[in-house]
Amino acid sequence: MAFSSDLDQITRAAAGERGAVAALVARYSPGVLGLSQRMLADNAEAEDVTQETFLRAWKALPNWEPRANFSTWLHRVALNLCYDRLRKRRETTMAELPEQVDRDLRPDERLEQSQRISAIESAISALPERQAAALNLCAIEGHNQKDAAEIMEISQEALESLLARARRTLRKTGLTGARQGQ
């Protein structure tokens, strides 16, 4: 998830070059928004977290440490903001996620696919927050173990344990059976 041109773009973005700012936003906002949305299961809150994350990034750019990984830093800020919001929630509510279905399917197939996706997303967001974060980062966002562990500020062994527990929980929910036509 790291890009060799990050430092160059960070330097140019810090100087206010609009193209570099736009490039950083285009490259990293989908990941940050995706992580936030799956952690919070709330579109508006996920957008707020994404905006707050980028605001913090813009403030940090002038003093950016060249060895730091921008992607890791950005996702860590977003994840911590998500944790803060989840802690503030007294009750976890599953907000409606945007309907994202394949338009080429027949209406009944579309409905089935939509329900299946909704079931998967609900099952992920019902996981304990650290398990959900590990699964989102590795299995969905595609971060490697090292990056995901750094984002979560845990060891790779701890990350592996969280992933294994998350996957075991999801298997128990019958998610894999549902896909087979249940």
Binding site: S29, P30, L33, G34, Q37, R38, T50, Q100, Q113, R116, I117, I120, E121, I124, L135, A139, I140, R167, L170, R171, L175, T176, A178, R179, Q180
Partner: peptide, 15 residues
């Protein structure tokens, strides 16, 4: 593999 296939269906989120 069954769980991987289920997770693959999670759509990408686009801002």
């Amino acid at each position: 593999r069954l769980l991987d296939a289920a997770l693959l269906q999670v759509p990408e989120i686009t801002p």
